[in-house]
Computed example of a mutant assay.
Amino acid sequence: MRVLFIGDVVGDKGVSMIETYLPKIKQDVKPQVTVVNGENATPVGRGISQSIYKRLMSYGVDVVTLGNHAWSNSEILDFIDDTNRLIRPYNFPKNVTPGKGYTLINVNGKQLAVLNFQGRVFMDNLDDPFSLANDLVNKLNKTTNCIFMDFHAEATSEKLAMARYLDGKVSAVVGTHTHVQTNDARILPQKTAFLTDVGMTGPADGMLGMQPDSVISRFLNQRPARFQVLETGRGILSGCVIDIDDKSGHATSIKTILYTDDQVID
């Protein structure tokens, strides 16, 4: 089983990069499941709308994951319960949060579980992702041993801790949120694939997708600044491709991919 995962889609540029490059990438790597993090996909870079969600699905995406900006566009409350292919972090408060934290995808008679969790270090103090992930994985193992997790977290230590905690129990733990692709893709000792951060998809010449001037000003004067998505310049698409043994659920390889409008790095 081959899974393509593409990192945090930011603004209109990010959505257009999916439209332009996803067909080409799928032709090259031939994934059976494509997962995209879409929590920054609106033009303002926070949240997702129903129209953008439908656009991403029409471009060939199978599952859209979210993160700490899941609720930044209130429109999501109108449609998240109506789809199984848009998932939010599982560890939001139970019973009072709309939507689902995982989904199951059929792949040639085998099921892939796609999970979404959010970290707590330097982020909102949600329910414990470690204990909840352990309980959910034990439940899902009765159905499938092919399990992919998007762990939306700030601290690199927390991302690696989650991967090591679940090593051998899930197929892959890939980090999102920090928008910069890391160079540490590897298979852990018990055959779980890990990457600290898959990177972002959006404006290549911004600062994490935002206009640089306002970000730099905040560092210079320490005053609040309104960050806006950069709308001009090159685009970037960041992702990874993971191969999973269908029988054991173990990852056999993980490879990063990085596209800009003027360069392909693989």
Rank of each mutant, 00 (worst) to 15 (best):
K169C: 05
T201I: 01
S157L: 09
H179P: 06
N84A: 11
G101H: 00
N84Q: 13
V33G: 04
R88F: 12
I87M: 05
A133M: 09
N125C: 13
G67I: 01
T182D: 08
S253A: 15
D262F: 10
R164F: 13
D205F: 08
S157C: 08
K191L: 03
G175E: 04
V114K: 01
D127I: 02
N125E: 15
M149E: 03
S248P: 11
G38H: 02
I257Q: 02
I52H: 02
G233K: 12
V241P: 00
E158A: 06
K169S: 12
G249M: 03
D78E: 15
G249N: 01
T103C: 06
L115F: 05
L220V: 05
I52F: 04
N37K: 06
M210G: 01
I105E: 00
S238F: 01
F130C: 09
A251M: 10
V29R: 09
N95H: 12
I52V: 08
G175D: 05
L112G: 05
E154N: 10
P89T: 08
N73R: 14
M162C: 11
Y165W: 15
L237V: 01
A251E: 05
G101T: 02
Q50P: 03
V9T: 05
V121H: 15
G168F: 04
K255R: 02
L160E: 13
V264M: 06
F122V: 13
H250K: 10
L208Q: 06
A251T: 14
A172E: 01
R223E: 07
N84L: 11
P43Y: 08
N106D: 13
S72K: 14
L104M: 11
S58V: 11
I187V: 14
L132A: 07
Q32P: 10
L126C: 08
P23N: 14
N106H: 09
G235H: 00
D261L: 08
R164K: 15
G202F: 05
G249R: 02
A204S: 10
D128T: 12
V114F: 00
G11K: 00
I147T: 05
R223N: 10
W71Y: 10
L258F: 02
S58Y: 12
P31Y: 05
G202V: 06
M123E: 12
V174K: 04
T232D: 15
T97N: 14
G67S: 10
S253E: 12
V44S: 13
T156H: 09
A225Y: 03
N40F: 05
